[in-house]
Deep mutational scan, measured.
Amino acid sequence: MASQGTKRSYEQMETDGERQNATEIRASVGKMIDGIGRFYIQMCTELKLSDYEGRLIQNSLTIERMVLSAFDERRNKYLEEHPSAGKDPKKTGGPIYKRVDRKWMRELVLYDKEEIRRIWRQANNGDDATAGLTHMMIWHSNLNDTTYQRTRALVRTGMDPRMCSLMQGSTLPRRSGAAGAAVKGVGTMVMELIRMIKRGINDRNFWRGENGRKTRSAYERMCNILKGKFQTAAQRAMMDQVRESRNPGNAEIEDLIFLARSALILRGSVAHKSCLPACVYGPAVASGYDFEKEGYSLVGIDPFKLLQNSQVYSLIRPNENPAHKSQLVWMACNSAAFEDLRVLSFIRGTKVSPRGKLSTRGVQIASNENMDAMESSTLELRSRYWAIRTRSGGNTNQQRASAGQISVQPAFSVQRNLPFDKPTIMAAFTGNTEGRTSDMRAEIIRMMEGAKPEEMSFQGRGVFELSDERAANPIVPSFDMSNEGSYFFGDNAEEYDN
């Protein structure tokens, strides 16, 4: 993207840094990872977990959730003011799984939030270390993106479920800051804005008074975040219109849905970061690795190297396929839920299948599930090659597409044709070009129609051997075009429920 120079890199967003050079960025990201790792080690000690239990991804998720809940100030305040039966607002906890007599047992633990905050700050040299908290939120978000298709949420806001490739980060909490905003897809931002506008339509006082002023500035800020994701002048001009509207209503909703559809071809720039579970960072720190000293990046080879040398386990339900569970977590670790499966298959070195073909449910185990038949197995999170994460949407291309997802959002900077089903997408653009945004709409449609099938995206960008740390010898991959490109292809993934 041309304006790259004016933006802070995501590592800076990730670490609240002012302008830093590459070495400083690597050190501050490393410091953040160190903090998460030290916190995780301490929690495993508190909970008396064995090494194996500490490497269980379900335990990692519970521990991450506990610290996120302990620092969720708004919710904590709300819980104190609106006490609900049987919930102690000062405590947080969740299921911890232990191996007892050759069987997995679930144990519900409860801790004072104050105590968890103390352990977290102690692991982070006394700081609140917001960057580390956001990092864990993005890992949870990436896992949700890989596990669930947001059909219901899309339909509720009037969008087409086939636009799911635009929904990265749709389950990120509001408090995820600049680093969170960077990884949100165009569809996620559109959905947040539509929800806001709908509230304004239904509630006369939404934009009024002292609160209304705050609401208005939040609305304009979200519009600017979305505008910054678009790469064409016409899309940005249309966002200006939406932002400046005196009284946002149905016309703005129409414009936003139009823009979301246009992003299936004229893709937005959305950041991709490899955020790993805390149970990967903990053992690495415990083994003596100093992330701050060595430096770390979320968008280069580092996460690949770390996963190459990590042992992570997962509980497996009786009829689940461990290899499929591994694929789910591998995609989440690489922030690749909406990437082209052919690119992923090449990088991973084994075939990556669409969601609907995987015999696996989510990673988390519900409290009512029976533990008797639970097994555990090693997650295979290694890769054959590594590639640089991208934040450009890439230019655009036609490809055989599917009944489910009709476009992709690249996660890796790797040369390819970008699949999208042009006739299906263009069919949504018939007729409606009147109104105050008509010239911009016409211009956007013209650009979409001009998108050429034979153009290559990320020209000359390749993948790298894991021994090639400096990215000196790019390998331009070859793809098996007979395979499906979309992950949520004609899909039956479970729906995400809060």
Rank of each mutant, 00 (worst) to 15 (best):
N321A: 10
V67E: 12
M191R: 04
T433H: 04
Q4I: 14
G490N: 03
V343Q: 06
E449K: 10
R175P: 02
A428S: 12
L306G: 02
G37I: 10
L298D: 09
L276A: 09
N202E: 01
A366D: 10
S345V: 02
G132F: 03
A332N: 06
S482M: 02
R162T: 02
A237Y: 02
R102P: 02
K227V: 07
S478A: 08
R446Q: 06
N205P: 01
E443P: 02
F39Y: 12
G462H: 10
L68M: 11
V109P: 03
N309C: 01
P173E: 06
K91Y: 01
A332D: 08
R195D: 03
L307Q: 15
T350N: 05
N247H: 14
K229T: 08
K357C: 11
F479L: 14
K87Y: 06
P423N: 09
S359W: 05
I119K: 03
R246N: 10
A234F: 05
C164F: 01
A323Y: 07
N247R: 05
N319T: 14
Q241K: 08
S217H: 03
H272S: 07
R348C: 04
V242W: 04
E443H: 04
D491E: 13
L298Q: 07
M191L: 15
K357W: 04
E114Q: 12
S478L: 14
Q311D: 00
S69M: 06
P248Q: 13
K184R: 07
M191T: 05
C279W: 10
K87M: 11
S376W: 06
G94N: 10
I225L: 15
V190R: 00
L276Q: 12
N368L: 09
R65L: 03
Q168G: 03
G394P: 01
I197Q: 05
Y148H: 09
D372E: 15
V285H: 14
V67N: 14
S478D: 00
R400M: 05
L154A: 00
V190D: 02
L68A: 10
G94A: 05
N321M: 08
I36T: 14
T378C: 07
V242F: 05
K91V: 00
P89S: 13
M456R: 15
R361K: 12
R470H: 00
K113Q: 12
G485K: 10
G158K: 01
R400H: 14
G37Q: 07
S402R: 15
K31V: 04
P453I: 01
A366Q: 02
Y111K: 00
I57N: 12
R55I: 07
I225W: 08
F338M: 12
A22D: 04
I96M: 12
S407R: 10
E294P: 00
R152S: 05
N76T: 05
T433Q: 13
P83Q: 15
E454I: 13
T92E: 01
I475C: 06
S287E: 10
T396H: 14
G228W: 05
N370V: 10
G435V: 05
S262G: 14
E46Q: 07
P423G: 15
G35S: 15
L298N: 05
N397W: 12
A428F: 14
M222G: 15
P161A: 15
Y10Q: 07
Q235R: 08
D101Y: 05
A70W: 08
T6P: 00
I36W: 09
